[in-house]
Amino acid sequence: MKERAIGWALFACAGLSTLVTAGIVCILLRETLGFFSEVSIVEYLTGTEWTPQFGEKHFGVLPLAAGSLLIATGAAIVAVPIGLLTAIYMSEYARHRTRSVLKPTLELLAGVPTVVYGYFALTFITPLIRQFFPETDIFNAASAAVVVGIMIIPTVSSLSEDALRAVPQALREGAFGLGATKLEVSLRVVVPAALSGIVASFILAISRAVGETMAVSIAAGNLAQLTANPLKSIQTMTAYVVQVSLGDTPQGTIVYQTLFAVAFTLFLITLAMNILSQWVMRRFREVYE
């Protein structure tokens, strides 16, 4: 009797996570539907102006989406090459002792709170950029993208390294036996063999960059404009949610509902990327023996 009760209690704990997902989807969906009863979904997805808090309201999510895209692209430009090369170094080149110091150090990067990265972007990266490009805005996409990139290096390097290390040693030995150099073994044998895991790590890292909030809202500004210039001030989807939350927004207003519509959009984008990452991992995994 007691045994069964415990079994059910444990099942309830595990089931809770499903309830959380259901809760997120229900709440987001309810307010989002309320939002779309007032704003057409076409205007939301194709409008190029986002001004819900102004007198003349426009509800085009594109400026926010472009802001998030700009940050994610910049972060990927920083994190993908550095993360992958770091992973190759740790898996193929580094001695055991070097690796045992390097890996935890990089993991520390992932453990630094994002608000600290925001501070770092504002007080270090932005002044640095302005030395080279004096016309840069105080709040600009570039500095936020750089720190978000630094932030997601460990995601890329750690997951890619796992994939690289899972490649059987026999493949490397075979290539060495044919006279290949370490560079050739790494780039032509090991990396292709681990490609699914590497690509999955890229997607996961970029999804993190899209969902990143604090560094972006501190360093990139709060000006929702459609621009591809990283030296300008922009606003991402996440930063918009923060900006509205800081003010006192009454429940039931259209501005309150925009929070949910934007968050739902964000949720769908990151969920899609996470699922894509898992799919790439499974679908394209090279299976040995």
């Binding site: 996570s17 997902t21 969902g211 949720f267 990327m273």
Partner: peptide, 14 residues
């Protein structure tokens, strides 16, 4: 596994 990838701000909305 999927919940682990949901941005923290979405939990804030919840």
């Amino acid at each position: 596994a999927n919940l682990a990838g949901v941005p923290s701000i979405v939990y804030g909305i919840l």
